[in-house]
């Protein structure tokens, strides 16, 4: 999608998710995260650092919110019940974890505000960031309700990967420099490799053929990555994937800002769905004994 295309189709480009968006998708990559399974171990964060050449900024900068972790585990603590409950019971209830990476919203708030069209939607349904086009205005980050875009305020190359460590960099990705916004790509290099292999063998990409680094590493398989195109256009894409069947099972529909569930026991929800961003990551609520 070139800049010209965006300018010519501007009115449809701004179309919200409830009008079906503007895209003719080839794929619609999405994810399901089962919070029942998530233990908050942080293996996905480490995997993301290794896969995507994320800069290690150091303790001092991290504490100033300059960390470059595309995937972060948010922690939420239960309100301590100051009544009859004891402290021990509060600890038993513990924390809840929420792994947050780019939600790849269908009508993403970051996309229309970019002055140079460095962030846009690919035909694969990914929210893309073109690093060499980015001028660092940071509008996208300010407009993201999830705060899942990270800005390179410094050049981290020297301090992050000193001499022998630069050998561990992933050659399929750019190392971002100062003044560039970056974000989760759903491991686009893996998607690209899988699509190239599929093309070589003259077939479609299979479900489960590849997965993102975080989903691959998750020790409890809490994350399920897959093509959701069957939810958008029935019969398209890779077919009914595991992720798409989970979306169906929990009766969460794409392109809606409010879900109508028949069964209150269904656990699926999307973060900030009411903002009509149409995020592509489905969370399955954690069930607890009270």
């Amino acid at each position: 999608m070139s800049l010209q295309n965006i300018i010519e189709n501007w009115s449809s480009y701004r179309k919200g998710a409830e009008q079906g968006g503007h895209h003719n998708y080839e794929h619609l990559w999405g994810m399901v995260i089962d919070l029942n399974k998530c233990t908050g171990c942080g293996a996905c964060v480490t995997a993301c650092y290794a896969e995507n050449n994320l800069a290690v900024v150091g303790h001092e900068k991290y504490s100033r919110n300059l960390g470059m972790n595309w995937l972060r585990i948010e922690r939420y603590w239960d309100e301590p019940d100051l009544g009859e409950e004891s402290v021990a019971e509060y600890q038993h209830h513990g924390a809840s974890f929420l792994p947050m990476h780019c939600q790849h919203c269908s009508s993403a708030t970051c996309e229309p505000v970019c002055p140079v069209a460095a962030t846009y939607h690919t035909p694969d349904g990914l929210n893309a960031q073109v690093y060499n086009r980015c001028v660092g205005s940071r509008y996208c980050s300010n407009n993201c309700p999830y705060r899942l875009r990270y800005f390179n305020f410094y050049s981290y190359y020297e301090e992050s990967w000193p001499a022998p460590l630069h050998m561990q960099l992933n050659p399929d990705l750019t190392v971002r420099d100062k003044g560039v916004m970056e974000k989760c790509t759903f491991c686009v290099q893996r998607i690209r490799t899988a699509k190239d292999t599929a093309r070589r063998e003259r077939r479609k990409v299979r479900d489960g053929e590849f997965t993102t680094a975080c989903a691959q590493t998750c020790p409890t398989s809490a994350m399920t990555f897959g093509d959701l195109l069957t939810l958008h256009t029935p019969g398209g894409g890779v077919g009914e994937t595991e992720a798409a069947s989970l979306w169906k099972k929990h009766q969460v529909e794409l392109g809606k800002s409010r879900q109508q569930k028949q069964n209150p026991e269904l656990r699926g929800y999307r973060v900030f769905e009411g903002l009509n961003t149409d995020p592509r990551v489905l969370f399955l609520e954690r069930v607890r004994e009270v």
């Binding site: 070139s2 086009r133 686009v188 690209r192």
Partner: peptide
């Protein structure tokens, strides 16, 4: 193809 992410990474 004319998609940015086809060539840019």
């Amino acid at each position: 193809p004319f998609d940015c992410w086809k060539c840019h990474k």
